[in-house]
């Protein structure tokens, strides 16, 4: 029944097609029959609204009729859902790997208490760096008593970052989860 509305200008046809896309998107949670029904009703509504408008050309009247119908959200770009799925599962992987590193760092902070001579951040004469549980030959430990506060600070910052990532990309109420359903 939506075919009852025919427009003579390409500009009006494009606007009408955009409106139909937006309407379909706004009613995406309805079943197909209700969606088709609302789409057909919208067409009769727009036709009635345009008939009441006496001024302006076809495009202007269609624009006014659509404005009266209400602001409909645009459908998201087609790439958003697959991108969200990739981001979701990529974040789970990143959280797992980063989480293991945070646990290792925490473990090192604890082990620093029992083995202050071995655990530390070591700097070699060659310029290389190593985070190690054991003293390194030819290397100097650079953090000393600051090792534990430094590691705990890194863990706190990393945990906050990982929590933010979880809220955004993994949590059921997060933005990425919502995009995955669109």
């Amino acid at each position: 029944m939506t075919g009852l509305l025919a427009f003579s200008t390409p500009q009006a046809r494009r606007l009408w097609q955009d409106f139909q896309r937006r309407l379909g998107w706004a009613n995406r949670n309805l079943d197909a029959a209700d969606r088709a029904d609302i789409s057909a009703e919208a067409a009769t509504h727009i036709r009635d609204a345009m008939a009441e408008l006496t001024e302006g050309d076809e495009f202007t009247r269609l624009q006014a009729a659509i404005a009266g119908y209400g602001d409909l959200p645009a459908a998201p770009p087609t790439w958003r859902r697959p991108a969200a799925i990739l981001l979701h599962y990529g974040s789970i992987l990143a959280l797992g790997v980063a989480g293991i590193f945070v646990l290792i760092f925490l473990h090192m902070a604890v082990m620093e208490i029992f083995n202050a001579q071995g655990v530390g951040l070591w700097h070699f004469a060659s310029g290389d760096w190593a985070l190690s549980y054991e003293a390194q030959d030819g290397a100097e430990e650079v953090l000393g008593a600051w090792f534990i506060p430094a590691i705990l600070t890194i863990c706190a910052i990393a945990s906050a970052g990982l929590y933010a990532l979880w809220r955004f990309a993994v949590a059921p109420g997060g933005a990425v989860s919502a995009w995955m359903k669109d």
Binding site: L23, I38, A42, H45, Y69, G70, D71
Partner: peptide, 15 residues
């Protein structure tokens, strides 16, 4: 009133 808001409500009332 945003005119389009009537239709989903009418659909729900019909259901």
């Amino acid at each position: 009133l945003a005119e389009g808001t009537v239709y989903p409500v009418l659909t729900r009332m019909r259901n």
